[in-house]
Write a protein that binds this DNA or RNA. Structure first.
Length: 437
RNA sequence: GCGGGCGUAGCUCAGUUUGGUUAGAGCGCUGGAUUGUGGCUCCGGAGGCCGUGGGUUCAAGUCCCAUCGUUCGCCCCA
């Protein structure tokens, strides 16, 4: 039986044209986060399973993580997310770090699940975290970073919306306003998360079923459903409006709007799956009709570092996956035509490879990226190869060119050909490279 | 883990309903059209265990079962 040429289920091969897109996305991300002063870190793909058991706890560990036993009998997981790892790293050097610590990484992550649109088993995720700030400046900055990244790709504010909510607010509503117990609160949270996926009647029926008879008589379900329709913080009931979390949300929204991030809104249905969030959470939604869903999100998780037995470190961060991002960029037609890394394709005319070697060496010494066609084929075939590779310039070397040291360089997009000296050719080629950047 | 759609040339697909000679098309690839210059045109060529395994039949790309892959949705999550 022949070996399959397909990549492993839910994982992707990156052929050069695919890798070029990924490189473009990653470098755009890096440019933005580094502009905000974030430093890149990395860590092993493998972690002991305990790292995940300690926090996430539920399905993501037991059913959606790649786990195996190593030769020493240790149970090892392939990381499904970066947050536990980065928390571990911060905890490990908690005393010596310079706070606030602004860190980022673009790790490769694995989850064992059924692949579907926007969700594969393997993906890459930009992780941006700021450690050591227990005030709203952290949230403000991190959301600005997220917004700047999308805008660096050419996105405009009509293409996405940034939804904000607060875990503290939701806790307050559950405990004080609705008076439900922890189990009920958890069930309701999961329900609210799915609210937009079901008909209104079904939602209210399921909500109603969560409450005890006495709560039901008091109209708890209607109370909650009415609350969830609230779009403005000032329209919240008197009993909630003065809670500290509401003031925080309002302050954050005001600041973001002041920074021209006008597509940030309050949305009480944003819950986010992970239990480790402790305060403000946010989620960015694609507004494209074919792809109307959450792209990525994050929030404050002040408790994770403390799990390692050290003093807690307040943290705000988000993760942005490459698959959903690429869907977004493609959906809004934001992916540019990417140039090849090779600047010049040298077309050899006649059997002159040996004589041309020094000329080609000079091109490279002057900083041009040069590929040479050594197939000995006719020029027309060599040119076709250059075009197919997406190389912008073809340079011709034959007896005549070597003799008078003037080489023909052809722009393969426009078809325009000129004759120049080597150094002039290198500067033309480099100018084009800068233009593209 | 659950349910639906789809697997035929490198790609997009026709052919499957009603089993029947050597399985087709377009694009792409490749060679050529007076031996130094792409995209147009013309001529030629390569390339398919019809996803895989089993079953029914005189006969299977076509019918049945299984399996793998892929895709959409659910759970979960983002």
């Amino acid at each position: 039986m022949a070996l399959s040429t397909q990549p492993y289920k839910g994982a992707r091969d990156f052929y050069p044209e695919d890798k070029r897109i990924q490189k473009y996305m990653f470098s755009t991300m890096r440019n933005v986060v580094e502009r905000f002063g974030y430093e890149e870190y990395d860590a092993p793909v493998l972690e002991p399973i305990e790292l995940y058991l300690a926090k996430t706890g539920d399905e993501i560990v037991h059913e959606q993580t790649y786990v195996f036993e190593d030769r020493g009998g240790r149970t090892v997981a392939i990381r499904p997310e970066m947050t536990p790892t980065v928390s571990r790293m911060v905890a490990g050097r908690r005393q010596e770090l310079a706070y606030p610590a602004r860190w980022y990484s673009i790790p490769n992550l694995w989850r064992y699940e059924r692949p579907q649109r926007g969700r594969l088993r393997e993906h890459w995720q930009l992780n941006v975290d700021i450690f050591g700030l227990d005030n709203l400046t952290a949230e403000t900055e991190v959301i600005q970073v997220a917004d700047d990244i999308l805008r660096a790709f050419g996105a405009t504010h009509d293409m996405y919306v940034i939804k904000l909510n607060s875990r503290k607010l939701m806790d307050h509503i559950m405990n004080s306003y609705l008076g439900v117990n922890q189990v009920q609160a958890h069930t309701l949270a999961k329900l609210i998360d799915r609210m937009h996926k079901m008909p209104a009647e079904e939602f209210s029926a399921e909500v109603d079923a969560v409450f005890a008879p006495t709560q039901r008589e008091a109209g708890a379900a209607n109370k909650l459903i009415g609350l969830l329709k609230t779009k403005q913080l000032e329209h919240l009931p008197e009993a909630i409006r003065h809670h500290a979390s509401v003031k925080d949300l309002q302050k954050l929204l005001d600041t973001l709007h002041d920074m021209h991030i006008t597509n940030a809104v309050f949305d009480m249905t944003v819950m986010r799956g992970f239990d480790y969030y402790t305060d403000i959470v946010f989620e960015v939604f694609d507004k494209h009709p074919d792809n109307n869903r959450s792209m990525f999100g994050g929030g404050r998780y002040d408790g994770l570092v403390g799990l390692f037995g050290v003093e807690p470190v307040p943290t705000v961060g988000f993760g942005m996956g490459d698959v959903t991002l690429q869907n977004f960029l493609e959906g809004h037609d934001l992916l540019p035509k990417l140039r090849a890394e090779t600047d010049v394709y040298v077309v050899l005319i006649g059997d002159i490879y040996d004589k041309a070697l020094h000329t080609i060496r000079s091109l490279r010494d002057m900083g041009a990226n040069v590929a040479v066609d050594t197939t000995g084929r006719k020029p027309d075939k060599q040119i076709k190869t250059a075009v197919k590779k997406g190389i912008h310039y073809a340079m011709f070397i034959g007896e005549k060119e070597l003799k008078d040291e003037q080489f023909e360089i052809r722009n393969l997009l426009t078809g325009v050909a000129e004759r120049h000296s080597l150094s002039r050719i290198v500067s033309i080629v480099k100018d084009y490279r800068i233009e593209e950047e």
